[in-house]
Design a protein around this nucleic acid. Structure first.
Lengths: 240, 240, 240, 240
DNA sequence: GATGAATGAGAATTCATTCAT
DNA sequence: GATGAATGAATTCTCATTCAT
């Protein structure tokens, strides 16, 4: 008859209540994944960091990818649970927009590694559109663009603002900046100024006046105007 | 009687001169890495795609990571070797800026997978600043910002344009857009319009005009002022 | 006022008395083992199928192999508890033999998977001879061969029937047939005919008649001889 | 950048030519599988028995099941490559049939464990009919039954022999006998007698005379005949 | 008695890299 | 220079069994 597997069993461990054990694994996994990346991190690393054995992870999570997903979900939910309350207390289109930009910068800055994992392992996957990440991301995007749309309604911004490209600029600038940041000095306070600068640029870009576009035209019109003024002044001029 | 050539028995083994063999491996590796990613791609896959055996790769490249690096370097050099000649033929600040934006979008779009590999395996690593990638990237950034600086010199753009944040917006928007693009329809021609929109927004954002009051309004006010001046000058004229 | 019964808070946990719980586990294990095989079936599978948890199984059974053994024992006992009563009601050597063949076929057919488990995990092991299976199996063999021996005693079968090889043929044919059956159409009613055919062949094989000359011929020759004897006896008769 | 895997590589082994290495693994696997069974045998066991490392097995065989299949195929081909030449040198239906029975017994006896693996892991699988085993098995079956059919053609056997059930009896008896044998004394010379006995029984069963079947009837006919003889003898009787 | 989370010892499989040929 | 079989360490995942609750 087939040999029996050696008995191992529970060595008497039961330190944590169910939910805390799960949370402990998530926390450890977040750290390890952030430090080493998905492929480089091994389940042993995570188990060690959790103070448990590999096998135990599989009680709480289906597999490695599931664990990563749960880590990122938890983190993403943390991020996206905070902003709405704060946003409610802010008035003025520009202020509100600035907050959303800053909040995005700040969140990414808080955990750039997880952010990269999100981009690489979640956002670039074909089924991303059917994940909870997509929904959460959409919500943040929409809440941000809603501010712009309010601005349009109030006549502060032009009616023909290209919202999708604007979104690319807002979120792209943040991600790119944080990406560069990662390799430079890491000073969270500087994010304030970055947010200021971005919002300034963006507001100029979409403000209601037909700003820079026909600058050259405007210039020439101003020049011809100046000329006419000059002319009329000449006509006035026989002052002497 | 003419002598018959003896069969060599080589079976056509060493077809390619050294340099071409290396190039063939690079080409195969580019394809395989792009399709499967770094970790998922195996040296056997690459060897098969090259029509050689695994061991041979190690004659030409130190190891897998070296191969990836060389692949990405080659690709990046290709990208960055093309634009300067074209840029030289383009006149006008806005046109030149638009070209650089479009070229970036286009290059990323051409090979999003390699782009992702670059981000994950090269750009996010601590020694990135000492790689040739960093230098190449800087050059493109600088060439782009140089256009803005020329614009400033010409008085087309404000003198206080925050160049580093502007760079984040330009390149960030491109990367973010392509990232979203990847999951949506893939239509290279649409990039034209994206570039247009981005350059439009950016130029508005940094144009020399103060955005305080609507330019058009300002203009018309100036014009009416000029008219009234003109009128008053006429009326004043009899003064002499 | 009538007092209200307090809710126990047990949630209905301990539904079944001990023996029934054990039976429930056995039943679930039989299903799971039959469907998945021994190695492929996990204790969790069995626990789930039983509506209990893994740990509980170990209260009722020593280990997985013990559970399998008990499952097979239960099943084997079921099989072997049924036939004697029925056999008692059947008369005639051939009929009784046919019943035992059919019953064997039928039992194997009813649960080929358990049958395979029996072969692999029980019957092929060195200590099989000291198991209850061996005893049960022997009993069925003996009961079958006893019929043959009765046939011999009655002069229906040859005295020199090689009983052990006959047993191999009877049970081997059944197992082989069911093994092939498993992969073909599964029609329990056809087993009737199979049993018929087997018993026919076997009876021919061990019938008391010497097979040297055709029995029918022999018979008719005897009959004609008898007739001629009769005739001659008539012709002789006037002798008196 | 991702850490490099530690170099291991070939420690300078290249003892065996390609085909021999494969053969060595097959031989080791045959032994290990035979001794331990499929599930109990581990790839490490087989590697150790081969004097190589686990990984090397996967160069020559796709996976564990593939290895088992190749082991069994090799063995089965060995078995089935030998008999036809020998059969050609044997004359007489009964002799030829006896040879096929003996050969089957002998082959199974030579490697009962592989035989069981064949039954459990190959023959009971749903796609068995599309394996080379099925074909090989069919060939042996057909060659055996062809002898019976020749016997029928020659008038030695009844025309209505149920060939499929006969096959079940022949091969089933052999397998069952070997199965029991396994647990008893293992004496190859006894197989001669077993084959003799089986062929004797089978020939009686299918011989052309309407043998045992209506033994009872025959008996009664004989009895009535005896009675009539008796009667006529009585009539003859005034012997004195 | 029942629970089920934790255990820990494997299991199969992969693969970058080496080096005798 | 090219080959490709061999290496060996690592990886993910499984699961029978235990025992604190």
């Amino acid at each position: 008859m087939p040999e029996l597997k050696k008995a191992t069993g529970n060595g008497g461990q039961r330190r944590l209540p169910l939910h805390e054990r799960r949370a402990a694994i998530l926390a450890a996994a977040r750290t390890v994944f952030a430090k080493m990346g998905y492929e480089q991190a091994s389940m042993v690393d995570i188990a060690n960091a959790s103070g448990i054995v590999e096998g135990t992870i599989y009680i709480h999570f289906q597999n490695k990818l599931d664990l990563l997903t749960k880590v990122l979900e938890t983190w993403y939910e943390e991020i996206l649970s905070g902003y709405q309350a704060q946003l409610a207390g802010i008035e003025g289109t520009r202020n509100r927009l600035r907050f959303m930009i800053w909040y995005n910068l700040y969140s990414l800055h808080q955990n750039r590694d997880l952010c990269r994992l999100l981009v690489v392992h979640v956002r670039s996957h074909f089924n991303y559109r059917h994940t909870s990440f997509y929904e959460m991301n959409c919500r943040y995007s929409e809440d941000t663009l809603a501010i712009v749309q309010e601005g349009i309604a109030k006549g502060e911004f032009r009616a023909d603002v290209p919202l999708d490209i604007l979104r690319d600029m807002l979120f792209g600038a943040a991600e790119y900046h944080i990406g560069r940041y990662f390799r430079a000095v890491s000073d969270a306070r500087a994010l304030d100024q970055v947010a200021d600068t971005i919002v300034e640029l963006v507001c100029r870009a979409i403000a209601v006046e037909p700003s820079a576009a026909p600058v050259a035209d405007t210039l020439s019109r101003l020049e011809s105007l100046a000329a006419s003024l000059d002319a009329s002044s000449r006509r006035l001029a026989p002052r002497i």
